[in-house]
Amino acid sequence: MVKDISEGEKRAAEEFEPMIAAFCCNWCSYAGADLAGTSRFEYPPNIRIIRIMCTGRMDPTLVLEALRMGADGVLIAGCHPGDCHYQKGNYIMEKRFDYIKKAVKSIGIEPERVRLEWVSASEGGKWAALVREMTEQIKNLGPSPFRLTHNPR
């Protein structure tokens, strides 16, 4: 197993392409990502979007599970404060986020790997810029420790 890890590390150092799981709310951020597409704003292909109805739906367990399974980064994206389709789902999420960060830290992962961002349906440009910036950030952090031991790709 030790050999596996060192090979994984070597490969990672050479060409680390992070895998970011993004949970986007249906009404704002998923639509914002759609608009980035319609506007042909290019960004790195390191992100995979999972559609949820509202960030208020984000159970902290989902974040922890994604990290445990080897995601290098987790993005939760929802409507701007005041813009929630369900009035206050994003505020509920914001409150939970402190707790999520603590939980992430407690399992030995840099809390910076998990981000909460607001992207509206008309912010295709912001979505593309966010993905570019976050991909770069996770590249600098390197592969998730869970990815190396649990799921070397």
Partner: peptide, 28 residues
């Protein structure tokens, strides 16, 4: 259908139709 209650429930007793924990986790 926002699902805030589902995420809040300490007993995981609330499931969202079409967006259940098991369905989202399957994607992850």
């Amino acid at each position: 259908g926002c699902g805030s209650c589902s995420a809040e429930c300490p007993r995981r007793a609330i499931t969202m139709r079409h967006f259940g924990d098991h369905q989202i986790l399957a994607q992850v």
